[in-house]
Computed example of a mutant assay.
Amino acid sequence: MMFSTTVAERQKNWYSGRNLPSRSRDIPVNLFGAATGYIFSLVLVVIATLVCEVIRPYLVPTNMVMVYQLAVVVAAVKLGLRPAIATAFLGVLAFDFFFVPPRFTFSVADKEYLITFFGLFVVGVIISSLVAKVREQSQEQARLSRQAEQARILQARENLERALLNSISHDLRTPLVSITGALSALKGEGERLSDQARRELLETAFDEAERLNRFVGNLLDMTRIEAGAIRLNMEPSDIQELVGCALAAMEKRLGDREVTVELSPGLPLVSLDMVLMNQVLVNLLDNANKYAPAQSPIEIQASVREGWLCLEVTDRGPGVPPDELGRLFDKFYRIPVPERVGGTGLGLSICKGIVEAHGGKIRGENRNGGGLRIEILLPLTQPVSEKP
């Protein structure tokens, strides 16, 4: 059978052959690592020899074997099997040369020392093997533990994703079912319904459509914030105007609830994105409206504090369990009480993202006597840069 290759193919093969030793390039690294282990073995033997020289006047030579055994144990634990065996072998040679009569030769006057040499080396090898096996078992257990932990985290993540998907699906279906039911009733029995009934069905469909729109809008806003795609249209703004716009947007949802507004006199204009900060204030008012008792007031306060504009929204709802305050601005977090309250758990997360995009801060705390206070701090003098 004949083979033929073109010049280009031969050149390609030649260059490929030159590139083959990627493994050979690793050999010096591996050799360097192995050499380092043996160098440390020699260092351990030198240290053991120096220790034995110090204690030599007080011990018979056979008792010095334990110092070299200790060096073997250290090598087995820190360096591995082969360097530990090398330590045992070098220890035998050092013990023979420096401490067995006649000293500074490898000759042995008393043949019983040969048994000592043999025992030192064999015990050293056994210790090295046992320690190496324990290390392998420990590494295996650590690997299995990591795998188990990763599996547990993966399972917890899957459970969380499933719960979030179920929650989102429920929040999407609920308004859709209400809208579909209202429109079906109007379509099927519209002529037989009274004007009042038709008007109530239309209002139900409209309210649920608004709810669905807010839900989808919150998801989109959260996606933009996490992607860093939020852009600020900064301009000097009047806080009184900001509060007024938010209250106008919330007028229908607030109904007859009392809202008290307390603005410190002489508030300066604040550089902010009016549309986005209006959304923040609307989300805070909506959150307070959902959780506070129907007859309790919501309070809005604004003041200047050490170079910051401080904007507060407080209510008299159940507050947040103290051990969960740190999760208040997490995505999809909802206060566990009252159970009747719905929502996506995205409103406060969106507030946090927008406020921080302004260079500000937001935090929440429980009020004395019950209720929740959300505090926003916006910089007055510090320039705010837009996020890309």
Rank of each mutant, 00 (worst) to 15 (best):
V275F: 06
V275G: 06
L276Y: 03
L276E: 04
N278Q: 13
Q279R: 15
V280Y: 05
V280S: 09
V280L: 08
L281C: 00
V282R: 04
V282S: 02
N283L: 07
L284G: 04
L284H: 07
L284T: 04
L285S: 01
D286M: 04
D286I: 01
N287Y: 00
A288G: 06
A288D: 02
N289K: 14
N289V: 08
N289G: 01
Y291H: 11
Y291S: 01
Y291M: 01
Y291Q: 03
A292D: 01
P293L: 13
A294I: 07
A294H: 10
A294P: 01
Q295S: 14
S296M: 10
S296I: 01
S296L: 08
P297M: 11
P297H: 11
P297S: 12
P297R: 09
I298G: 00
I298S: 01
I298D: 02
E299A: 10
I300M: 02
I300L: 12
I300P: 01
Q301R: 15
Q301D: 07
A302D: 10
S303I: 01
V304E: 14
V304R: 08
V304S: 07
R305G: 00
R305K: 12
E306V: 11
W308D: 13
W308K: 07
L309I: 11
C310E: 15
C310G: 00
C310M: 13
L311H: 04
E312G: 03
V313R: 09
V313P: 00
T314H: 06
D315C: 06
D315V: 02
R316L: 08
R316T: 05
R316Y: 09
G317N: 03
G317R: 05
G317H: 00
P318F: 07
G319P: 00
G319M: 05
G319L: 10
V320W: 03
V320R: 03
P321L: 14
P321Q: 10
E324P: 02
L325H: 03
L328A: 11
L328Y: 11
L328P: 02
L328S: 04
F329M: 12
F329R: 06
D330N: 14
D330C: 11
D330A: 15
K331T: 10
K331W: 08
F332A: 15
Y333K: 12
R334K: 15
R334W: 08
R334A: 12
R334Q: 15
P336Q: 13
P336C: 13
V337W: 06
V337M: 10
V337E: 15
P338L: 08
P338G: 07
E339D: 08
E339G: 07
R340M: 09
R340V: 09
R340F: 05
V341Y: 08
